[in-house]
Simulated scan of single mutants.
Amino acid sequence: MLASKSSLKRRLQIVELVRKRGEVSVEELSQVFDVSSVTVRTDLTYLEQQRYLVRSFGKARYLAQKAGENILVPVADEATRKALELAIARFAAEAVDDHQSLMFGTGAIVHKILPFLADRSNLALMVHDIEMARTAQRFLHCELSLTGGQLETGETILTGPDAEALVSRRSIDLCILEANGLDRDGQLLRTDPEVARLFDVARKVAKRTIVVACQPQLDERDGEAFANLADIDALLLDDGIDPPTMELMPQRNLMLDRRESGVLEFRKEVS
């Protein structure tokens, strides 16, 4: 169910108020935002589920993060992270239709999408990760191609000017890329500058671009931008996104569609 812009804005303001004061009562929140206590309790239930705060005896208390953490959500254990990645991959796969020309960028989540496409027909898939090409050969009946480019010793990922040139000449219906980071200006980041440059080329030539991410880092110093939220058609990530980042989405014309299994999908609003 889509949250209205007014309720989303109010919930973000509630989190900020509770963060500043440490603890605020339901009655006080009702007066501050001029809404009923029922509405406030609904807001607090949602915010507690998203781990922004905790409720206790008619009050809301801020849920502090561990010192030094520079991520959207508390770090999940390995099993939880893998489950989140798989859920994100499953929903991303729904965007792929028969007869499409695809470009898949490297990444654990994007790699997990491939088995979900086993029943698609007449796909033309281009990848720049040799391991992903091997997985595609196992699960898909499709036209498969590698970008070419430079391959560092011990690596499986192809990058460089040759890869960028080949991608720039292709007709791509759908590009699915994976972000390592997301900064406060809405820039989507990759830790490897060479991968970021290839991703930038791919999303510019693609008719549609979907970006996936799981617990992306927030520090722009640790990554290279390959797109802005305003440049893409959809973003799929886990539901621990923090309020300031959540507020970026409608500003970039991306509207929330909450999926199952702790996955958020932000889709470009069609005017």
Results as ranks from 00 to 15, higher is better:
Ala67Gln: 15
Leu146Cys: 12
Asp43Arg: 14
Asp185Ser: 11
Leu158Glu: 12
Glu178Asn: 09
Val96Ala: 02
Leu114Cys: 11
Leu86Phe: 05
Ser168Lys: 03
Ala230Met: 06
Thr80Lys: 01
Gly223Thr: 01
Val32Gly: 07
Phe104Met: 10
Lys204Thr: 02
Arg51Cys: 05
Ala213Ile: 05
Leu2Gly: 09
Gln150Asn: 15
Leu236Thr: 08
Ser121Pro: 02
Phe226His: 02
Leu174Lys: 13
Glu28His: 09
Met103Val: 06
Asp173Asn: 11
His128Lys: 10
Arg51Gln: 15
Arg169Ala: 03
Leu166Asp: 08
Arg221Val: 03
Gly58His: 12
Ile88Gln: 08
Asp43Gln: 15
Thr42Ser: 10
Ala227Asp: 02
Glu143Asp: 14
Met246Gln: 06
Val38Lys: 10
Ile130Lys: 01
Cys175Pro: 01
Thr159Trp: 00
Ala83Tyr: 12
Asp119Phe: 05
Ser168Gly: 02
Glu143Pro: 04
Asp242Ser: 10
Leu248Gln: 12
His128Trp: 03
Ser101Glu: 15
Asp173Trp: 04
Leu63Tyr: 11
Ser37Gln: 15
Ala179Pro: 01
Ser121Ile: 14
Ile172Glu: 00
Ala165Val: 13
Arg267His: 10
Gly105Pro: 02
Pro216Lys: 03
Leu174Met: 06
Leu188His: 00
Ala225Cys: 08
Val167Phe: 00
Ser101Phe: 12
Asp77Asn: 15
Ala163His: 00
Lys5Leu: 09
Leu63Gln: 14
Asp129Cys: 06
Gly58Pro: 05
Lys204Gly: 00
Phe33Met: 08
Glu23His: 09
Phe226Arg: 13
Met255Trp: 07
Ser30His: 09
Thr245Arg: 09
Thr39Gly: 04
Lys112Asn: 08
His99Met: 05
Glu260Thr: 03
Asp119Ile: 07
Arg170Cys: 00
Leu237Gln: 03
Gly105Phe: 02
Thr153Ser: 05
Ala79Tyr: 08
Pro115Tyr: 14
Ala76Val: 13
Pro193Leu: 07
Leu198Phe: 00
